[in-house]
Design a protein around this nucleic acid. Sequence first.
DNA 1: AAGTGGTCTAGACCACATT
DNA 2: ATGTGGTCTAGACCACTTG
Lengths: 254, 254
Amino acid sequence: MSVHKLEIAGRPRGPDTPEALGFRPLYRQVKAIFVRRLVDGVWAPGAVLPSEGQLAAEIGVSQGTVRKALDELATENLVVRRQGRGTFVAEHDERRILFQFFKLAPDQGAPRFPDSVVLSVTTGPAEEAERAALDLAENAGVTRIRRLRSFDGAPLIVETLSLPQQLFPGLEGGPIPNNLYSLFAGRYGVTIASARERLKAVALTADDAAALGVPAGGPALQIDRVALSLDGTPVEHRLSLCLTEEVHYLSDLR
Amino acid sequence: MSVHKLEIAGRPRGPDTPEALGFRPLYRQVKAIFVRRLVDGVWAPGAVLPSEGQLAAEIGVSQGTVRKALDELATENLVVRRQGRGTFVAEHDERRILFQFFKLAPDQGAPRFPDSVVLSVTTGPAEEAERAALDLAENAGVTRIRRLRSFDGAPLIVETLSLPQQLFPGLEGGPIPNNLYSLFAGRYGVTIASARERLKAVALTADDAAALGVPAGGPALQIDRVALSLDGTPVEHRLSLCLTEEVHYLSDLR
DNA sequence: AAGTGGTCTAGACCACATT
DNA sequence: ATGTGGTCTAGACCACTTG
């Protein structure tokens, strides 16, 4: 059993607690403990967490406090709760990615995952834009993956990913699977937790148009994505160019 | 004081409760009561709700149950909670719209709200696409607003809104403010609660290009929005065409 | 000082899944 | 039957805002 230093030990907050540092509720401290376990891989994707009661007893708080911490993790899709079964570490299976990270859907028919063909994998020093997006040092290196993604053989997306070499060493050596986030988690212990996408409409360059097999100059949806890991570090930059004749990007505003 | 029929009166659920209808927690029933009050305008935008304790006493449940209902409403941005002050009905002020419903932001500089110039306001029978989007009957009428939106006089968006005449009678008569959602709430008692946007990259038609003051055929971001009211009814269809040279659409994936 | 939402606890019981 | 998460309650206390 591990030992944790909670800012507040037992029940009432002592008046000697430094109040200048701002108030931090117990359940957030507990949540931080859990996030740490996810980051460290103590709780690996797919695994079952101990029950609420066990966690409460271990850490020394009430079950309700553990519950509130787990509820927040569930809201952030880091954990999945299933009544009667238990609480599980979220996995990057195809379903989840389709739901959470892949917002392009066919105008007609059910959402699905495109096939991928890798066009090239290269390594080199990070460019200015990549360093900015990924928060890298000046001498950092990146691995770049360029690939074409299709529905039933019809080219849909041509995209270039930039990944920090330090985080994903040897990536350029092996095969590149279609589901990259699953690879990141399984081989490198890096869990993608969130992403921010910036969208523009652009005219296709000759190069990109050729890759997609369409005339140059036509409109394409450009998606500039930065994906963040569990601890908030940017770990992937991805520039996608999408043909949107029979496909759209879905954004729910709530 | 109003009277509510809760499926379960006191504390324990009797075994005679029809279980085939599925389980519906108390706090969701309470939440439904609150939503009804919002829909009916009993609680108008900007107003303060009674305190948790008062609501609990009135309805006959514990404060914790009221709290959970209010928490969900707060998550859905229907209500705003402020510690020490109270719980307020959410308003469609410019800040909220900018944060929740306007996802276009300048590449450089802080997010802001564009100016609008109304190009035309017309009424007529709903077309096929409008009926589908707004779930209208075959003989229903719509009011269409076409307007140009700009940053500092630089045209950014040309858009056409379609609104059910039945919901917004007389809309074509008066002036059209920049903040439509505020008008919907104030004049028609219709609160926009959520929206679904479908994005594509398209080539500008001669007509749209002329409105925007750019050459025809250039790329534009097409945003097809359907906005839903509190009770889930589609109440607005909006087709926007945006120049994204110096602006992007922001989408957070979490 | 008083009132509000926010946190934390302890305990009871319900719904769900598995054994 | 057992174990899990989910709901509901009651009460205490904390943090924040206002008079």
